[in-house]
Design a protein around this nucleic acid. Sequence first.
DNA 1: CGCCGTCTTGAGCTTGCTCAAGGGTGGTGG
DNA 2: CCACCACCCTTGAGCAAGCTCAAGACGGCG
Lengths: 248, 248
Amino acid sequence: MLSPIQLRETGLKQLRHACSNCSLRELCLPVGLSPDEMRQVDQLVTQGRPIKRGEALYRAGEPFHSLYAVRLGFFKTSIVSEDGREQVTGFHMNGELIGMDAISTEHYTCDAVALEDSEVCEWPFTEMETMSRRIPSLQRHLYRLMSREIVRDHGVMLLLGNMKAEERIAAFLLNLSQRFALRGYSQHSFHLRMTREEIGSYLGLKLETVSRTLSRFQDQGLLRVQNRLIELKDLDGLKQLMNSCQSS
Amino acid sequence: MLSPIQLRETGLKQLRHACSNCSLRELCLPVGLSPDEMRQVDQLVTQGRPIKRGEALYRAGEPFHSLYAVRLGFFKTSIVSEDGREQVTGFHMNGELIGMDAISTEHYTCDAVALEDSEVCEWPFTEMETMSRRIPSLQRHLYRLMSREIVRDHGVMLLLGNMKAEERIAAFLLNLSQRFALRGYSQHSFHLRMTREEIGSYLGLKLETVSRTLSRFQDQGLLRVQNRLIELKDLDGLKQLMNSCQSS
DNA sequence: CGCCGTCTTGAGCTTGCTCAAGGGTGGTGG
DNA sequence: CCACCACCCTTGAGCAAGCTCAAGACGGCG
């Protein structure tokens, strides 16, 4: 049986554990917190909250109070335009923080849906904000995480604005591969958590195009695809492909 | 002749002035600062620094030390992929803050280039950060501005991922119109500061497509275009067009 | 075993791109 | 002040990437 304090510590500890056996520097938490600061943060972060596959962690329009760190599992975030078109804005795995879009309006602006059974740590934002005034490295860390999200979004804009279908898919697979590798998983072989349609929505393509392109890559020996299992057989080939288009 | 303190205050005063005769709430500065806090911020923000048309305020790769508030003029920010393709990530007018992408890596990740003779206020970030610990509303404001940038980027992703050429152009024009209106300028008639190619880069289209689409809109009576002068004649028509595509 | 959601593949079409030519405009220097 | 030049914009014709529509296969789950 855990004491209340131990219980409280569970969330952060689990999150730290989820990021510990890999090189996720700064992905979840700032480095160099003192034991006392660590304890303060600990008391703020709630323990892992489970979200079942298909469930929404939050939906666009709901009032904002917390950021969420994915501790385990896989999420997609998406926005829906006035006339009902969905755009997936990101896929998020353990150690990544979501919900930052909600700070400006105090309401979430996307839906966050679990693509497999998942767990998140809740970061109550107002409290986090207050604490970040006492702990400079925490404050800096929050700025950094938000900035990183902006940089990531710019990368997606480049992908959507400039790349051809093959390049987009190659970039997408390489990005996933790299993120899995960072977490200590295989960079060559992994399971796609999302449907072809969701991939397509993220990449600005139709699901048929995603499917066809994957098949073509397989024919070319770049990878093996069996349903949602992907085995990348030629990472260099994919990288080359990604930068190969001389469009302007 | 101004005293040193008056000189120091010039930057913030000018910025505030640039945003005063319009409803740019929270665009440049948090509301509700005490006079003393105001003075502290004043001493941090440098006075307007001029940037000539075509000059870069900063370039990708340069070390980061400041955010910049556009006081006057017009900027584009753009990233360049490894193989040399440019993606315009945004156009920025008075009262808008740029450079937030640089916080995460301590280096700017885009180029920021003036599209007309402009002036910026410099916000030294480290000092801003320190001060934001003493002034909660300033801290909150910085978080908000970064969050807003994330939301904006998601909107662009929706545009690039889901919209057809006509919709993109309509959305672009309406967005500009709205931002001019916010600043007290005409929402019907304005001057484009950027080339067709830059518009195209932002919208994921080729310059010929931009040109053709504008011509078509003119033929349809939606607007009048003469070089870079745009006169929107049917805002509702454009809005309708923007949400008209039933692509899935 | 059967059903539903998901994926694959084909055929034809449409949008936006490419390539090309020509005209306008604004800035500069004679 | 005018002429020239560089850059920007427009428009056309043909093409190709990716979309639409459709049919069928696969696979997981009840």
